[in-house]
Write a protein that binds this DNA or RNA. Structure first.
Lengths: 237, 237
DNA sequence: TAGTGGTCTAGACCACCGG
DNA sequence: CGGTGGTCTAGACCACTAA
């Protein structure tokens, strides 16, 4: 494990345990260099991780301070801006899917620009309802290039596609570009999600990337409004 | 302007102009060191900015590659995960507010944990409808500690509070922690937002921080569903 | 003015990928 | 095995803050 990760974890734990409290100043980088027997650059890198997580702020000329955050709020932060599938996001719940459609088609126009493909490429066309602890919660429309993700079968789609990609194909999922919006549920969706006509849904449109830079997924997830929430840490510049 | 920012901007522009195309390999860090007359660490820092923006990916042992992104998709990315107020987010539109409530009260329980205050601290209690180009678009409930943000007056609230904080008080807004969800509009909100009973709204609950680390704002923004959308770049690890 | 964090360097060593 | 990007160092200089 790299040094800056270890240091970063250690300081994060001290903050979460309350050893460094909200609004309190933490030791100077110079002193942390001694504490952790590291160079200034390494300490800076460790602290910068906590800055992007939103736990601390740094002020040139003054020092480094724990943000003015209630301890209960802190735990959410470490998972904000992390890319996880539905299964991984609900580790203590059962996630199963009912397949509405599973076929292979030429890449439709709507997905061409997202996946950077042309219509002569083939993609899986997947439409499924994801049940969490038995309750229909998300409807997911998904396009994946068959060249990148070979061998998809119905049983996989009923469970976790991401797990298949990582554990069976040994590919590495690297990042996702997601757009969040809201709208009214369609009648078709309402039926599957057990919602009333015109109820709200949250829509997450997403492009997923492998560590090769290749776009492997374009999906539109329609979530019941009472089971959707996402945390984001935003910064100036 | 710092060297790594200049380099980062230059490479971003080359990608956006198509000089470095989707899926294409860009020069090795070693060569970029020569091109930009910089050290390896500086080049790495410049490239890492583009990685977190979602434009490129790096593979140890292989090189650095432009992500498999359609050029049209790229422009959205540079503003993802940026913290802006409504006014700054709509630079070409007119943003005005109708005040529903503006008073000073002891910090209510709902905001105490968010702002890390106790009930003996006073906060502004602001409730306003934000009109964008004349159309009611967002209803914003906002609590701000009067100690941190002194001198707020009604005319300021009708325009941009963020501008007042930065340009009049010369404070620096540093980051925000935001939670996004969706629900049905209340009857009261429907009236002000010109929505029908039960229509969807997107809810952005947010804590804003100054560069001192102090929480200066807790707000709940209720957006018309047809004028709300947010982009997020998510990563593993 | 002393001391903070920010930038930048030159160079060492390492983990990983490809031929 | 050579070459990539990743980590880490020791030290220089700078911009900024606070007393």
């Amino acid at each position: 494990m790299q040094k800056y990760i270890v240091i970063s974890n250690d300081i994060r734990n001290r903050i979460l345990k309350g050893e460094y409290q909200a609004n309190q100043q933490i030791p100077f980088e110079k002193d942390l260099c001694v504490t952790y027997d590291s160079s200034k650059m390494t300490i800076k890198k460790a602290l910068d991780i906590l800055v992007t997580e939103g736990l601390i702020i740094k002020r040139r000329g003054s020092g480094t301070f724990v943000k003015d955050i209630n301890p209960r709020e802190m735990e959410r932060l470490s998972v904000a801006n992390q890319f996880r599938g539905t299964t991984a996001l609900n580790p203590n719940r059962t996630v199963l899917s009912k397949i509405i459609n599973f076929s292979i088609i030429p890449c439709p126009e709507v997905a061409q620009s997202k996946l950077n493909l042309t219509s002569d490429s083939f993609v899986y066309d997947i439409y499924r309802v994801r049940h969490i602890d038995g309750l229909p919660t998300v409807m997911e429309k998904m396009y994946m290039p068959i060249d990148l993700i070979p061998g998809l079968k119905a049983p996989t789609i009923e469970h976790s596609i991401y797990e298949y990609i990582e554990e069976e194909l040994h590919l590495v999922i690297q990042s996702g570009h997601r757009n969040i919006s809201a709208r009214k549920v369609t009648d078709f969706e309402a039926e599957h999600l057990h919602l009333e006509k015109g109820d709200p849904v949250a829509v997450a449109e997403q492009i997923g990337y492998l560590d090769t830079g290749a776009a492997f997924e374009y999906s539109i997830s329609v979530h019941r409004y009472d089971d959707f929430s996402i945390d984001v840490v935003l910064t100036r510049d």
